[in-house]
Amino acid sequence: MAEKLLEVSGLHASVEDKEILSGLDLNVSAGETHVIMGPNGAGKSTLGNVILGNPEYIINAGKILFEGADITREKTDARARRGIFMSFQSPEEVPGVTLEDFLRVSKTAVTGKPLKVFAFKKQLKKTMAALNMDESYAQRYLNVGFSGGEKKKAEILQMLTLQPKLAILDETDSGLDVDAVRIVSEGIRQYKNESNALLIITHNAKILEGLKVDYVHILTDGKIVHTGGPELIDEISRDGFHRWEESAAQ
């Protein structure tokens, strides 16, 4: 049996006194790819933020375990060092800090080991080439003046550099053109192996092409109302979320 990575049980979370997640359960094991789909406002992005411990979100009930350890109250940086990563829907701009310096600091923080600088630079160059990112981006300030697509590529670059155990991709495909989606998908495929896991939050099937999806979860009104296999993706592309929204309303 595959090793359990993430176990979320009975999770209730709110932001500004408004409950967004209302009793959410989710288990992700090593080697698996999970997809979370749902209508706007269902709580998809909240889920990613809560798993990472964004202090803006308050957990009212429930537990989050990672590799068996209770991380419900743990700070974000500690969770990241355990191997949780999220590709942000709208990554922050940080003026004055170059992408390369940032990656070096975070790689050192995540591994807890001093970095081999030459090997790091070499690998960085290679990964950037694979993502079709111009080398000059390494010396640019983090996300500052990056286009939407460049920001998403930079997120995938971070994922490939940090090699997390669990990568949450929050709407990574939004705002990307066809070529960029292809490149980003390729990056995701490169990352994926038998010992790590993906949790892909999306309402678009394009980014999933070429990925072996194990589970598709339908998230509406702060809960997972249905879990199925990859066949659900086509169904949703065709019919939307109508049937689950209705069932949730009943």
């Binding site: 942000f88 990554p91 975070s106 923080a109 940090l162």
Partner: peptide, 17 residues
């Protein structure tokens, strides 16, 4: 910005750093 701090922390960097 709190969002920028959260973003950097999500990459393993401590709040202070």
């Amino acid at each position: 910005s709190d969002d920028a701090v959260f973003y950097l922390m999500s990459r393993g960097i401590s709040e202070e750093d």
